[in-house]
Amino acid sequence: MSETQYASLFGTRLRQARQMAGFSLRELSDRIGGAVSHNALAKYERGEMMPDGTLLIALSEALDKKPEFFFRKMQEPIQAVEYRNAHQLGEKEARTIRFKAQDHFERYLEIESLLGLKNAFANPLGKAVFSTSAGMEDAAQHVRKQWKIGQDPILNFTQTLESHGIKLFEVEAPDAFEGFSGWINAHPVIVLNFQKNTLRKRHTLSHELGHLLLKGHLGPSLQEDVVVRRFGAAFILPEKAFKDAFGGHRESLALEELIELKAVWGISISSIIMRAKELGLISQALYRRFWDDHGDAWAKARREPGDDRYAGREESKRFFSLVHRAIAQQEITRSKAAALLDINLDELREQINILS
Results as ranks from 00 to 15, higher is better:
248 G>L: 13
211 H>A: 04
202 R>A: 08
244 D>L: 12
299 A>C: 11
217 H>A: 01
217 H>V: 14
241 A>L: 13
210 G>R: 00
244 D>T: 06
259 I>D: 01
287 Y>A: 04
219 G>S: 06
304 E>P: 15
285 A>K: 05
238 P>G: 00
243 K>D: 14
269 I>H: 08
255 L>H: 02
256 E>T: 08
200 R>M: 06
197 N>Q: 14
216 G>E: 15
218 L>P: 11
242 F>S: 09
277 K>S: 05
252 S>T: 10
304 E>D: 12
266 G>M: 14
240 K>L: 10
303 R>G: 13
239 E>F: 01
279 L>H: 03
313 R>Y: 08
265 W>K: 11
271 S>D: 13
216 G>Q: 12
315 E>S: 07
216 G>L: 12
205 L>S: 07
301 A>C: 07
225 D>Y: 15
203 H>D: 12
230 R>E: 00
312 G>E: 13
291 W>D: 06
247 G>E: 13
193 N>V: 06
285 A>I: 04
313 R>G: 03
242 F>P: 01
238 P>Y: 05
201 K>P: 05
262 K>N: 13
218 L>I: 10
213 L>E: 01
197 N>Y: 02
273 I>T: 09
227 V>R: 03
254 A>G: 09
242 F>M: 10
311 A>R: 15
219 G>P: 15
189 V>D: 08
225 D>S: 02
296 D>K: 09
211 H>M: 11
261 L>A: 09
247 G>W: 10
272 I>L: 15
301 A>P: 01
307 D>L: 14
274 M>W: 05
221 S>H: 08
267 I>N: 05
296 D>F: 08
203 H>Q: 10
274 M>V: 02
220 P>V: 02
208 E>W: 01
252 S>W: 10
276 A>E: 09
284 Q>H: 06
224 E>N: 09
289 R>G: 04
241 A>Y: 12
241 A>Q: 14
296 D>G: 04
209 L>Y: 00
257 E>N: 06
195 Q>K: 06
287 Y>H: 03
213 L>S: 04
281 L>V: 03
263 A>L: 10
234 A>K: 04
216 G>I: 15
231 F>M: 01
233 A>H: 09
230 R>L: 00
189 V>R: 02
208 E>N: 01
189 V>S: 11
201 K>Y: 08
192 L>R: 02
252 S>N: 09
240 K>W: 05
204 T>E: 00
314 E>Q: 12
218 L>D: 12
222 L>V: 14
216 G>S: 09
257 E>P: 06
261 L>P: 02
299 A>I: 08
266 G>S: 02
200 R>N: 11
245 A>H: 12
292 D>G: 15
204 T>H: 02
274 M>Q: 15
261 L>I: 04
281 L>G: 11
268 S>M: 13
304 E>F: 03
309 R>G: 00
291 W>I: 02
